[in-house]
Simulated scan of single mutants.
Amino acid sequence: MNRITALAATVALAAGSLALTAPTQAAPARAYKVTAKANLEVAVAKEDTVKVRGRVTPKAAGQKVVLQQRVGNKKTWKATGKATIKRNGTYVLKDKPTTPGSREYRVLKPGKGAVKKGYSKALEVQVYGWEKLINRVSGPSVNLEPAYVYIGAEAYPSSLATTTSGTPSSIEYTLGRKCTDLRATYALTDSSATGSSGAATVTADGEVLAVHSLAVGTIVADEVLDVTDVFRLKLDLSTTATPAAVAAVATPEVLCTR
């Protein structure tokens, strides 16, 4: 064996030795990939159902995914529902919010065997809820107080009614740009005298949203006004002194988030 042949054999032997002693690297562990999409970005508490749909890969038919959510500024996630993954890898999760406020949803697929757990991206949903206007702290109020009134022989609790006929009446509420709708009925109450009359005006940040002329038997029922981005709401009522009238904003509610 000449010197060149011997050197080549030595190099080959050394390379083989290194190959035998090199540590083997384990393949990276897989994790479930979870996609998710919500049917709503804005929901109404106790009315709307948020549906979260998505897909899990690798497929895990018959296994469970978990719906998690966190409300407002909370840091922890809370499990609020489960669903079974279908044969094609898809799932549907549902939640019906009961309280207003911003919240996030995400979907967890727990680990199984050699596949680690996976999470979907977080989905933000803004939830609004109807609340009685008289339960909010009011601003200036003149000749107008919370009352239980009758209009057209029907009872309207949680209402606002004038106290002295013939005297201008008003009340203000701060919505703080956190509400989107005002819902109320405007009328003279059944205690008003025949032939009496009145008027109701709704103003938002100085802009008139609605004006209603009122008489016995005239009812503006369940009117919904847009108060999106309104900071201060004002209600003005007027009535005749003779014949005496009582005007009411019956069961007013606002649709607000926290």
Rank of each mutant, 00 (worst) to 15 (best):
L255F: 08
A26Y: 07
A61F: 06
E253C: 08
D181Q: 14
T174V: 02
D190K: 14
P157N: 05
T57W: 15
F231V: 12
V71Y: 14
T218W: 11
V115S: 15
G54F: 10
G16A: 13
V65K: 03
T203Q: 09
A60P: 00
L255T: 05
T163F: 04
R183A: 14
P58A: 10
S141L: 08
L144A: 03
D226K: 04
K64V: 04
E145A: 15
S169N: 04
T239V: 02
K94Q: 11
K96W: 10
A61V: 03
Y128I: 00
I171T: 10
S17Y: 11
R3S: 09
P58V: 08
P28Q: 01
I151Q: 01
T5C: 07
A26W: 03
T239A: 01
G72C: 06
T239K: 10
L7Q: 09
S238Q: 11
A79F: 06
K51E: 07
N73W: 11
A114Q: 14
T5H: 10
G54N: 02
A29R: 12
A215K: 15
A193P: 01
P110D: 13
S17A: 15
P168V: 00
Y105E: 07
R136S: 00
D48L: 03
S138L: 02
V52D: 00
A147P: 05
R87L: 12
A79H: 06
V224F: 11
D226H: 05
A15W: 10
L133G: 03
V44T: 15
T90G: 04
A200N: 06
G113R: 14
A122K: 10
A38M: 12
R232T: 11
A215H: 09
A43R: 10
R30T: 15
F231C: 01
L237H: 05
I4Q: 14
Y119C: 04
K33C: 12
T163R: 08
A161M: 10
L133K: 01
I151K: 06
A61W: 05
C179W: 13
L209V: 07
G195I: 05
I171H: 04
W77N: 08
V227Y: 01
Y186M: 15
V149W: 10
N88E: 00
E131H: 03
G72V: 10
A250D: 00
A221N: 00
L7T: 04
P157E: 11
R70P: 07
I219F: 08
V208A: 12
P146Q: 00
V254T: 09
C256W: 04
N143R: 04
D222W: 14
Y32P: 08
A26V: 07
S120H: 05
Y128V: 05
L188T: 12
P140K: 13
L13T: 12
K46I: 04
T194S: 15
W130P: 00
R30P: 06
P110L: 15
T218D: 13
G152K: 06
T163P: 00
A204R: 03
V71H: 13
V220R: 06
K37R: 15
P146D: 02
A114F: 13
A155H: 02
P97N: 09
T185F: 08
A215M: 12
A6I: 09
